[in-house]
Amino acid sequence: MASDYSGWFVKYHVGLDGVVAAFPAIVHSYPEPFTTFCQDYYAFSMLSVIREEKEDQSLLLLNVSNKVVSYRFKDGT
Rank of each mutant, 00 (worst) to 15 (best):
V20K: 06
L59Y: 15
F37Y: 14
P31V: 07
K67L: 01
Y5M: 10
L47G: 00
K74H: 13
S45W: 06
G15H: 14
R51M: 12
W8V: 07
L60Q: 00
F37W: 12
A43W: 08
K54E: 15
M46T: 12
D75N: 13
L61Q: 08
R72M: 05
S65E: 13
S6E: 12
V14A: 08
I26M: 14
N63W: 05
L47Y: 04
F73N: 01
T35S: 15
G76T: 02
M1K: 12
Y12K: 10
D75Q: 09
Y5Q: 11
A22S: 14
L60W: 04
S6N: 11
G76N: 15
V10T: 14
W8C: 01
G15E: 10
Y71E: 00
V10K: 09
F73G: 01
F73Y: 09
G15L: 10
S45T: 13
A21F: 09
N66A: 09
D17P: 06
G18Y: 00
E32F: 01
A25D: 15
Q39H: 13
L47W: 00
M1E: 08
Y41D: 00
G76W: 08
F23E: 03
E55F: 02
G7Q: 05
G76F: 03
S29K: 13
E53Y: 13
I50A: 04
D17C: 06
T36A: 10
P24K: 05
F9E: 05
Y71R: 03
L62K: 04
Y30C: 09
L60V: 06
L16C: 04
F37I: 05
A21Q: 15
Q39E: 13
V68L: 01
N66Q: 11
Q39V: 14
N66M: 07
D17E: 14
D17M: 05
S6H: 09
A2Y: 07
E55Y: 06
S3Q: 12
N63I: 00
D75T: 06
Y30G: 02
V20C: 05
C38L: 13
G15K: 15
F23C: 07
Q39Y: 12
K74G: 03
N63T: 00
E32A: 12
D17F: 06
T77W: 05
Y5L: 13
Y5C: 10
N63D: 15
P33K: 14
K54N: 15
G18P: 01
T36C: 07
L47I: 15
M46C: 12
F23L: 05
L47D: 09
Y12F: 07
E53K: 12
G15I: 07
L59P: 03
S70N: 11
F23D: 03
V64K: 01
H13W: 08
Y12N: 09
I26Y: 00
D56F: 09
G18N: 14
S45A: 10
Y12R: 12
